[in-house]
């Protein structure tokens, strides 16, 4: 998947899960501050990313993901071959 495709997918998942419009989500958006996700939303988002991209995201890595761009970076670096 290209970086653009990964971003689109994460934007779609985030909008759906957080009940917001996709247009409100940019790479710079912070899940907690801009998108108003709480701790359980983040756990669910990470689970959704794991499912959609076929990967396991360890907790210590998940905690470092605070923005949409960081989520894209993580997926790009860890995509299954």
């Amino acid at each position: 998947m290209t970086r653009e495709e990964v971003f689109e997918k994460i934007r779609e998942i985030s909008a759906d899960r957080l009940g917001i419009d996709e247009s409100e989500i940019t790479p710079e958006s912070s899940f907690r501050e801009d998108l108003e996700a709480d701790s359980l939303d983040l756990v669910e988002l990470i689970m959704e990313l794991e499912e959609q991209f076929g990967m396991e995201i360890p907790d210590e890595e998940a905690e470092k993901i605070t923005t949409v761009e960081e989520a894209v970076d993580y997926v790009m670096e860890n995509q299954p071959a």
């Binding site: 701790s39 359980l40 756990v43 669910e44 689970m47 907790d59």
Partner: peptide, 10 residues
């Protein structure tokens, strides 16, 4: 709580 939540949701 985090792990138990994940387990339950699955």
């Amino acid at each position: 709580g985090r792990e138990v939540f994940k387990f339950a949701v699955r």
